[in-house]
């Protein structure tokens, strides 16, 4: 074998060894990448299965209306869902039917809340508000119309059913929804067949239109003449309306309407939880015995834990007199009685 041939064969060997090394390395990389993919699949797949199964088990409590305890309308138009004489933590739910986060909250935690109430483990206090009342229509009008309709449904003991239907049919923000005809139909779907309900919806819709249209324009233009932009932004709708009362912006059309109740309830919660850790700063806001829940409110298990760890509490509103509960009559108390602490 010549020198050149020996060199060539050595070179070939070297090349092969190098190739072998590269191949081994490629295999090692494929190995770790494969292992990493398996980890990702296990974590994502396993986690997904766990989370969806948890959701499904919580959804089993949905729409079990026959098992629900009594729904009692309060003087401020809120509704307490609790077993007779239940001694349990009070869960207050402040929500706006037009608010997407409230819809997510209802989807995730609503059924669990109803179950906790049915089991006598919680007193669920539904307190609809309208955080969008001051915004332009249709977001304000959707919000007010739906809240007033839910209040009307409460007169027939169907608040919870109606509330669920509203959230299922929440219009996309910025589009007109919760139309009067739909609101009437949903009343029938919830089991309300009194004609007075439909009449009430029409009356409330008219009040909403006047509020978000003519009244808001008058109020804002009068207020803009009086206050600086900065001052205006710092004022709540309640303060503005009171100022309007004294300055010739008439809102007598709101008398005896549920729209007014919702506006008063919204003003009242801003006062009730006006600072500190439990400040009311938007919807949904969920309080257990007056202490605000954080992100844990957005899962049934989170709510359940919070309730398990709380002492029995007291509802801070008085029930509406029972004799006019089913008459569709107007509320007797125009002052928001819950403003007392």
């Amino acid at each position: 074998m010549g020198k050149a041939a020996r060199q060539a064969s050595r070179e070939r060997l070297r090349q092969e060894r190098l190739k072998e090394k590269q191949r081994a390395k490629r295999n090692r990389i494929l190995g770790v990448v494969g292992a990493a993919l398996v980890v990702v699949l296990l974590v994502v797949g396993g986690g997904y299965l766990y989370l969806t199964s948890q959701r499904e088990s919580e959804q089993q409590f949905a729409e079990q209306y026959a098992a629900l305890p009594p729904q009692e309308v309060q003087q401020d138009g809120s509704v307490v869902l609790a077993e007779e004489g239940a001694e349990a933590p009070v869960v207050e739910v402040y929500a706006d039917f037009q608010c997407p986060a409230c819809q997510e909250f209802e989807k995730a935690s609503g059924p669990t809340l109803q179950k906790l109430a049915a089991d006598g483990r919680a007193i669920v206090h539904y307190r609809p508000v309208s955080i969008f009342a001051q915004q332009p229509a249709p977001i304000s009008s959707n919000s007010l119309r739906s809240a007033a309709a839910a209040r009307a449904a409460a007169d027939y003991g169907k608040f919870v059913q109606y509330h669920d239907i509203l959230f299922e049919n929440q219009p996309t923000e910025g589009t007109v929804g919760f139309a009067a005809d739909d609101l009437k139909q949903w009343g029938e779907d919830a089991g309300i067949d009194a004609p007075a309900f439909a009449d009430r919806i029409d009356a409330e819709s008219a009040a909403v239109d006047q509020f978000t249209g003519e009244y808001s324009q008058q109020l804002m233009s009068a207020a803009q003449d009086e206050f600086s932009q900065q001052k205006l932004q710092g004022m709540s709708l309640g303060e503005l309306m009171e100022w309007g009362d004294e300055n010739g912006v008439d809102r007598s059309f709101l008398e005896d309407t549920y729209v007014k109740e919702i506006l008063d309830a919204t003003a009242a919660v801003n006062e009730r939880y006006s600072g500190g850790e439990s400040e009311f700063s938007g919807t949904p806001s969920v309080y257990v015995n007056g202490a605000k829940l954080g992100n844990e409110a957005f899962s049934g298990s989170g709510i359940e834990n919070a309730v398990e760890n709380a002492e029995p509490g007291q509802v801070d509103t008085e029930p509406l007199a029972s004799d006019d509960a089913a008459s569709g009559a107007s509320p007797e108390n125009e002052e928001s009685p819950d403003a007392k602490e």
């Binding site: 608010c99 986060a101 955080i131 969008f132 709540s236 801003n270 009311f280 700063s281 938007g282």
Partner: peptide
């Protein structure tokens, strides 16, 4: 003012 917004945290 926080009341305008949806999820206020």
């Amino acid at each position: 003012m926080c009341i305008h917004i949806v999820a206020c945290s």
